[in-house]
């Protein structure tokens, strides 16, 4: 059987190439997942609440203090000074603003009691890393409590 000349065949075949070929697997679910997760990431990044900024700053401050802790001899005092000044400035800032819960001061007293217990333990063992970490956490909880009960966006969460 005679074949067509190559050039003729090529020209004809290029014109007749199928415009569409069907893939063997479903491709839409993967695309949908990818674009949905990207949309969620964008939405999350644009809906950041104002108090999160405060929390991030405090977190960064906490990190800085922990870094300093490695070099300073009296770590507990350093942490206490830092957080006490933060706490007082927050209390002053929010003193004229109504709180969203009635019992926040009772919660604060409980946290302060925990703080006192940890500091007492640190008097015995000033370099105990676990205790220092607990002290930082309990201070952080106090700051978070004061901030959140005075932020209007708290109710929307």
């Amino acid at each position: 059987m005679n074949k067509k000349p190559f050039d003729e065949m090529l020209k004809q075949e290029i014109q007749n190439l199928p415009d569409e070929i069907t893939p063997t697997r479903e491709l839409w679910p993967g695309v949908e997942r990818a674009i949905s997760s990207e949309a969620m990431e964008i939405s999350a990044s644009t809906n950041i609440k104002p108090w999160l900024g405060v929390a991030v700053c405090l977190g960064a401050a906490l990190f800085s203090v922990l870094m300093i802790m490695k070099q300073e001899p009296n770590n507990a005092v350093l942490i206490a000074d830092f957080f006490e000044s933060q706490k007082q400035s927050l209390l002053v800032r929010y003193q004229s603003q109504p709180a969203l819960t009635d019992n926040w001061q009772a919660q604060l007293v409980e946290l302060e009691a925990a703080e006192a217990a940890i500091r007492q333990a640190l008097d015995e063992d000033p370099q105990n890393a676990a205790l220092l970490r607990m002290l930082s956490q309990v201070y952080q909880q106090q700051l978070d409590l004061i901030t959140k009960v005075h932020q209007p966006t708290w109710q929307q969460i």
Binding site: P18, D19, E20, I21, T22, P23, T24, R25, L27, W28, G30, V31, A34, I35, E38
Partner: peptide
């Protein structure tokens, strides 16, 4: 456009599985 994009991807990649990945990447 899925099948059209897949046809072009397959011709360029000469690999049916890679062409599927490329098609998905194109639409993303």
């Amino acid at each position: 456009y899925e099948k059209k994009v897949y046809a072009l991807s397959l011709r360029l990649s000469a690999d049916p599985s890679a062409a599927e990945d490329i098609t998905q990447e194109v639409f993303v």
